[in-house]
Design a protein around this nucleic acid. Sequence first.
DNA 1: TCTGGGGTCCTAGGACCC
DNA 2: TCTGGGGTCCTAGGACCC
Length: 413
Amino acid sequence: MAMTDSPSSWSRVIILVDMNCFFAAVEQKDNPQWRNKPVAVTNGVQGTTIITSSYEARYYGVKTGMHLREARQLCPELIQAASRPHRYVEISTAIMASLEKVTPDIEVYSVDEAFLDVTHCQSLLGSPLTIGQLVKTLVMDVSGLACSVGVSGDKTTAKYAAKLHKPDGLTLIHPDESEAVLAPQLVTELSGINKGTARFLAQYGVFRCGDMKNIPISIPAKRFGNLGRRIWLMAQGKDPAPIETNVKPPKTIGHGKVMPPKTCDLATILIYFQHMSEKVATRLRRHQLKGDLFYIGLKTKDGWLQTRAKASFATDDGKTIFYLCHQFVTQNWLGQSVWQVQVTALNLHSEQQTDLFADDSSVAQRSQLNNAIDEINQRYGEFTILPSRLLDRSEMPNVIAPSWKPFGHRKTI
DNA sequence: TCTGGGGTCCTAGGACCC
DNA sequence: TCTGGGGTCCTAGGACCC
């Protein structure tokens, strides 16, 4: 652990907390017989792609995005664990709540990552190093899990620091040293710069972070707008992005699902669309939002068939959304085999705005029923009550994944 | 045996309006 | 005949994140 910690306080202290192999670590914690063994988490019991794996499995070369079959060739004793999203959310919530005791200036970045701005905690809690150690202790106490912590003067450098020592690391980069530490690194080492951006920067001779200062900020700014300005500063250890404390309402709500191989059956396709419609509708209601524009897509061998369907009024009702899907399928699908379906609500309004228009009595009735269903589902789990068409499909897994391989393109919106 | 599931932000181009 | 602005909304798609 390389650490620098000066006695004088830093002008800005940003911490990134990153849980190590989060889903796999939870499974090992809850199933003690799996500890110190290679574990791979998949999307339900039928899942064949690895969502994440334990360090023991990674030792054999098992990676996120890999097929289970391929992984077993590398590691025959690999243990498959079916994902349990609710459990991960539960532990994540407990961790985030404990971090909130350190500072209210916390940004929950994903299910297993959080940024903390502890600039103003230094006189109360101690040096950046001390606060970093405190964070690790808190996370361990509340979850029994190890995390990696990066501490620096901005979000990007803190995130870079956190990945230097895994698992269970604590890495400090003093803000005064950020620029020098990042300078020899490839720009793609930074979160927010990937191949596309790197390709653009390479045209101007920028390959490593230290090259960035040789071009004017106007070059990335002209190409990428505000993001371009941020990238220019990021590479020099001066990421200006603030910790976003407020949880913003979602701008889109969507669900998609890969189909069984070579699905050509209309009934099956409709079942999937209905399932996606109900999931979207349920989440709209949970957020007290309604949508009047829906992306509906269907991926075939030849590419995407897609549309943006307008509902005649803003809705959070699964049947209404499914009706749009049904129309789309009958008008556009010609019988090709289907790989994937997608339904996304695009144009979201809060209910207060839309209730003015919901004076139709059948709409109001349905809305009451939906609220009742929501209550039951929240208490006993998703889809306890659901449309009859879905009954024999209710075991469809749904999972949130912390990371995935960035190949194969997915079309949304 | 090529297939997992959610998002955000940004740009360019066209339609439309005054 | 030619030249002509400025604004908004919508759509399609690229790039990135976990």
